[in-house]
Design a protein around this nucleic acid. Sequence first.
DNA 1: TGCTAATCGAGACGGTACGTCAAGTCTTAAG
DNA 2: CTTAAGACTTGACGTACCGTCTCGATTAGCA
Lengths: 214, 214, 214, 214
Amino acid sequence: MVDATQRRSSGGRPRDPGADVAILEAARGLLGEFGYDRLTIEGVAERAGVAKTTIYRRFPSKVELVTAAIDELRPPGLFPDTGSLASDLDAFLAAAEQGLRDPLAMRIIAALFGSIGQDDGLFDTYWRGYVEPRRASFRELFTRAQARGELRDDLDLEQFIDLVGGVVMYQAVRPSDRPVASRVRDGLEFVWAGVTPDGRSPFADATSDRMTRT
Amino acid sequence: MVDATQRRSSGGRPRDPGADVAILEAARGLLGEFGYDRLTIEGVAERAGVAKTTIYRRFPSKVELVTAAIDELRPPGLFPDTGSLASDLDAFLAAAEQGLRDPLAMRIIAALFGSIGQDDGLFDTYWRGYVEPRRASFRELFTRAQARGELRDDLDLEQFIDLVGGVVMYQAVRPSDRPVASRVRDGLEFVWAGVTPDGRSPFADATSDRMTRT
Amino acid sequence: MVDATQRRSSGGRPRDPGADVAILEAARGLLGEFGYDRLTIEGVAERAGVAKTTIYRRFPSKVELVTAAIDELRPPGLFPDTGSLASDLDAFLAAAEQGLRDPLAMRIIAALFGSIGQDDGLFDTYWRGYVEPRRASFRELFTRAQARGELRDDLDLEQFIDLVGGVVMYQAVRPSDRPVASRVRDGLEFVWAGVTPDGRSPFADATSDRMTRT
Amino acid sequence: MVDATQRRSSGGRPRDPGADVAILEAARGLLGEFGYDRLTIEGVAERAGVAKTTIYRRFPSKVELVTAAIDELRPPGLFPDTGSLASDLDAFLAAAEQGLRDPLAMRIIAALFGSIGQDDGLFDTYWRGYVEPRRASFRELFTRAQARGELRDDLDLEQFIDLVGGVVMYQAVRPSDRPVASRVRDGLEFVWAGVTPDGRSPFADATSDRMTRT
DNA sequence: TGCTAATCGAGACGGTACGTCAAGTCTTAAG
DNA sequence: CTTAAGACTTGACGTACCGTCTCGATTAGCA
């Protein structure tokens, strides 16, 4: 999607593909370690074992560099069909729990939201490159569930994805001692009554006391 | 909560209280205009008509300065009782719609989330100083509703606040042409079935076709 | 003298002679416009319509390039015999006046002396390539004059050339409103008493008040 | 004359005078070692033990820095009266011989002439700050000689200074195995016939074979 | 005619230094 | 002891050229 590495077709020494890899890898590493603000181009150059100019030749700015670095993280196909909404969600939650332990993921979310309101297009790129693919995975997951009859037929999936996304994001971000996955599950319990045909939670072991937990 | 203005009691020239005001005002203005990254202490000093030293004596770092500047925005008492959950929420949504048009609000959210994973305590401060007061307002609002019988008695309010907060935040942040308030309302419609005693939306004019909108 | 254009004898595509010309011409042009310091190889390449490699293949460094560029300016045979020392000198002074108006000449002198004390051999090359040929012309001119009896027989021509060269150089370089030629002539007036057989100026129209001018 | 160290009168931390000294000293050292071209501001900063910005605060450009550095070399009072033109000149020649052994002197001359034709005012500054004071010393020396009757009364001193200056400069610059002082003396021998009342060299031990040396 | 070998253009590469900006600290005189 | 003013160190910025290097495409002369 973002391909800052593009260049004119003919003539000249070809770009070192190893440099591309090294740069983006270094950028991701430093982003995970220090966060967007304290990531420096010179630091990336040093870690990648590359001259600063080699970076600037590919990425005109820090924003574009980080964008491209993150862009590669886009997962190919999340959420394989496990047979039921409940198990699909369980799989997702386990993966999310795992993924959010990676400091890089938090940094990316930080960089993503830190760019709100900036005019540099970083936020849009992030949204398209990072959020949208994950929404697409949810879309697939929920479409399957709808086909199975686990979700109401008249459910507006986009709005529902917004809702689930909000729950996940908020729980990912909010300080808490409990694991994210568990909190997300608790949060979604409120919703099933409105979205499932029978108003029941799809989770077999759903805590019956879900309304009273703290 | 944050009171960087504290100082030793006696002797010498007293601090200029006007300086405090001017500094924080300038900081807020520049934060709204440029965002956290591009806000500079020197810029704040110039706009406040104050020497850099005067800022550093009060706030040891940029983080603390911005924290204090945002801290003053804490609203005294949001969400007055309008008599019903529906009208309380309508009032909130109208205010939110209004508030999110202010670029400063978006910058603050950006700064808030941009500090996730940083070790400088900025995020915690933000959460305590900015998010928690709003959660408290919701808590008050929903407690009233519960007392009125508009929400189920056994509802865990903290989890419910998480849910509502997630919806609001996600919609505030996601790119869309529709107004935030309307999207938040649509999002909450999914939830009422699970949280209200009769499973009905508290909104009188609730769109019956809420499940089919795009 | 300097022939950086030399190459191995056989095989392969022959060098483009047009490139040699274009490079040296561009170098001279840029030297005249910007001076040695601000002349860049990339600038020469661009103006010559030639790749940087093509320059480096011929001239291993900026010094050698500029040297070669200047080298071509060596005049074939200055100072034709006009019949007398006075008219020979008048012809020389007129030519010098003309030549020193060319900014390139001043840049070359600047580059020449700017390289004093450098260990890159630039100064020696300049001296041999630029100064020596001019000294040779003087030598010829003064030898003729000596033969004609216009200069003392026992005059050490090398020392005399040093003297005249010093006068010319100093006047060429020193800030003044009067034309160089006139100042050089005035300067040489002091000398005739010591070098001519009759102690008189060779110039017919020599100002008798030469000792009092300002 | 050049006083880049000037600043507004009141308020703020005063400039560190030690820094001024260290910077100019470092600049002179590096100028002597490497010459103008290869002198870098970063090198000066490092040797002076000072931050780059501290240099740029004082001197907006390399030219101004070097100018100021050289400016301090202006000698207070050259050429004390030794009683006669011959001994005055001997003293000068000895000093010149000494001075021109200092690589810094050659570098300065190189920088001086290297700046000819540049539009940065460097040359003018050099001329005023470096050449003019030395011309003034000559003026004084020759005025004394004229008063003593060692030079003709009607001699135009400015033109004579030009002449002597030219001889000195040319001999200082030209490649040769013989010492500068000796060559300058030989060169001036040509001149005495035209400028002394009796046409004789002021030097007691003047080589009678001065016209035949090589 | 096809092979060989150097040239050409284009431009990437690791570097060095540039001149600027801001951060956060320090120093002074004035209040 | 605070304040305004501003110098100071530090570190990164993004740019310009350096001189070297790798390409693919020419362009001879030799086989």
